[in-house]
Every structure is written in structure tokens, then in C-alpha cells.
Amino acid sequence: MSEPVIFCDRLFVDLGGMTVLQGLSISVYNGDFLAVLGPNGGGKTTLLRVILGLEKPTSGTVTVFGAPPGIASHRIGYVPQRLFFDREFPISAWEVVMMGRLSRRKLLQRYGRADREKATEALEITGVAGIRNRRIGALSGGELQRVLIARALASEPELLLLDEPTASVDPEMKSTIYDLLERLRERHTIVLVTHDTGTIARHVSRIACLNCTLEMHEKGSTLGRKTLDSLYRYPVDVVEHLDAGGAKPDEHHDHA
């Protein structure tokens, strides 16, 4: 197999005296659509932050596109949790999407026509071209989420990292976002972090369960004995997703 896009080997991460990731090993290959599931505080966001170079591991190896994190930033599109925004900030949807072009431009270099074209294209792909001039605070949850995905796409990334893309959007919008990701996976390697277990299984190619807290035992028991055994030894494991029939898609039980 070719060189992995993301490679983590026995990764340990401490945050504020707490071990958040314990010996995590995972490889993501070109074309993968990986969902990282797990409870809040299980280290999902931390894993993304390590991949992005925002958090340094205490020990272990992590490479992204064969280099240490933070080097290949222009090849990664990141969609953060939308909750953390100042909704009062005077910025239009268009300006947010243009921010995606930052990694393609040098300091002091101004945005040009190519940047505007890419941003327009990204807005069209995510279906929010019509609201480009609206202030960010005036957007609905689903619109904002698609603007943030457009920002990630505007940087022409090979790898897309999404943190809880369906948290706090209504169920109808949820499936719209999954449909969008379904189309995006043809061109991008996708890693998605979520605690939304219901619908996700139908869309992704692989699922990883991540939990470093003591609850892992109870949680693990629902994953079958084989998984449970490995969860005892390693708090983190990758479960190959069998097929669509194996999962139990039950949208009404989703609690976002």
C-alpha cells in the first residue's frame, strides 16, 4: 500500500496533566473516509489538533503527508466545531470562505482572481453561493456549517478534517451534510470526528472508536467481544466497518 496520508504510531498526548490519548496508532490512506467515534472528552478533537500541529504529542510518532504536522498545511482543509465562533463578528460568508485561501498565499500577498474563483467554486459545491454576502451571524446552523466546509474546500485540500460537522444542526440538514460529504469523498480523503453514531455508519469506509476515559469498558461492550479485548489493551482501536447492513441506522435515536 502507498504511504499513508496520516500516520500515528503509539501516540501519547497529555493535556493539563491528564493523558488524553494513550498509545494511539492509526493510519489513514488516500481515499479513506474515516469516522472517529467516541464520547465527549474521549480525545477525538485532540487527535485532530495533533494532526493539525496545534497540540504536541508527549511521545510517539505522527506524520501527515510524510512530514511532521504543520508542514503540509496547504494540503489540509479543516472544518472546526462551529460552536466556537463569535456570531457578532462583522464578517460576511464570502470573507470567511476567502480565508481558506490563506494557506495558498504568502504574507503581504493580496488575494487575486484565482482565489476568488476557488472560493466561488467552493461556495457552489456546498450550495451556499446565494448567501455569500450575508453576515456570518445571520446564517442558520446548517448554512454556517456549509460555509465552513466551503472555506476548507477553497484551499484545494487533499485531506479534509471535520470536527463534529453535524452537531447542532437539525436532522434534515444533517443528511444534507452527509450527502455533501458523500460527494466530496470522491476527490478528498476525509477524517470526520463525531459522536453522532446513527447515520454515520452508512456513509464512511472505516470507523475508529476513541475513548481514553474509564467509561471505555461500558462503551466497549456494545462493540463486540473482539473489539472489547483490544480495547482493554489499547484504549484506541480501528474497527473495519463491515457493510451498510451491519450497522443499525436509526436516525430518530440520534442525540446531537
Binding site: F89, V96, M99, L102, L107, Y111
Partner: peptide
Amino acid sequence: LFSKEFLAISFDEEYARISGL
């Protein structure tokens, strides 16, 4: 000169950092 960079660190500092700023 720094308008796009200042906008980025003001609105979303983390994204600015990820973008290599």
C-alpha cells in the same frame, strides 16, 4: 498590508495558525 492576516487572527486565530500564519 496585513488586512487578510489581521482579519484571520481576529476571527479565527486557530484557523490562521493552521493556515501557516
